[in-house]
């Protein structure tokens, strides 16, 4: 894996309401080909971080860089063109459209790429290729996530931002979704994933960040974070503690 940084935030301060900051100096980065997880307690600013990167939240100070170029506060249409894709947590497919039409929306800015990209996503997820004419509204939650992620891949993004893709899914569907995310990453797409299901996310991540009160409190490889006593105590709960008791516990820097 190359050490080229694809996406980076520097001292990001952002919030929805004037005078109320959700992010309080957040520093994270994604290297080329990396799968980076963002975990943390409710209200830590995980989803806000993605929204700030994607121009959906007011940034008060700090920077967002894409391949070294500043993209702070750029709107979605510009970011998509520059190679950033985002899949929101809820309502992320167009229910009245077919799977194929949903994918067509993903290549809206470069319609000539449609054929090439649909071949790519259907080779990644053959199930989609067999059901292109099916209405997205009739799909299960996990299948909808697959469509939403595939649609974001239609513009051939250099980095994909995923906001809690496993939220609201059954355990089986969650597993499928994490497998899909790992598969997308293996296809060469850098991924930043925000997850409530911290343990499961860290299992597939190259690196992870633990956000707390809008700051990157801890960082390290997925395995390191999973075994860090502080992270386990504060964010991963008893299941993780049981797991940690049987494994070594390297120290993590903050």
């Amino acid at each position: 894996m190359a050490n080229e940084i694809v996406l980076e935030t520097k001292d990001l301060v952002a919030g929805y309401l004037p005078g109320v900051n959700i992010l309080n100096g957040c520093n994270v980065y994604v290297q080329k080909g990396e799968l980076v997880g963002i975990i943390g307690p409710n209200g830590a600013g995980k989803s806000t971080l993605l929204k700030a990167i994607f121009g959906q939240v007011n940034i008060r100070s700090g920077q967002v860089l894409l391949g070294g170029d500043e993209i702070t506060g750029l709107k979605a249409d510009k970011l998509v063109t520059k190679g950033v894709g985002m899949v929101p947590q809820n309502n992320n497919v167009f229910p009245s459209l077919t799977i194929e039409e949903n994918l067509e929306m993903g290549s809206y800015q470069k319609p000539k790429m449609f054929k090439e990209r649909i071949d790519f996503v259907t080779s990644l997820f053959p199930e989609l290729g067999r059901r292109l004419k099916q209405r997205a509204g009739s799909l299960s939650g996990g299948e909808r996530q697959m469509v939403a992620m595939s649609r974001a891949l239609m513009m051939d993004p250099s980095v994909l931002l995923l906001d809690e893709p496993s939220a609201g899914l059954s355990p089986v569907r969650q597993d499928e979704t994490f497998i899909n995310v790992a598969q997308i990453n293996r296809a060469g797409v850098s991924v930043m994933i925000v997850e409530q299901n911290a343990r499961r996310a860290l299992q597939i991540c190259d690196r992870g960040y633990v956000l707390d009160q809008g700051r990157d409190a801890y960082s390290g490889t997925g395995r390191t974070l999973m075994n860090d006593p502080k992270v386990i105590e504060l964010y991963l709960g008893t299941l993780a503690t049981d797991h940690a008791a049987t494994t070594s516990t390297p120290t993590v820097g903050g």
């Binding site: 959906q56 979605a76 970011l79 167009f94 459209l97 949903n102 929306m105 800015q109 649609r151 974001a152």
Partner: peptide, 16 residues
Amino acid sequence: RAVAGRPLTAELLGLP
């Protein structure tokens, strides 16, 4: 139809 169904999602895809 996409904009009608999910305006925010449409915006996130860069649709005008």
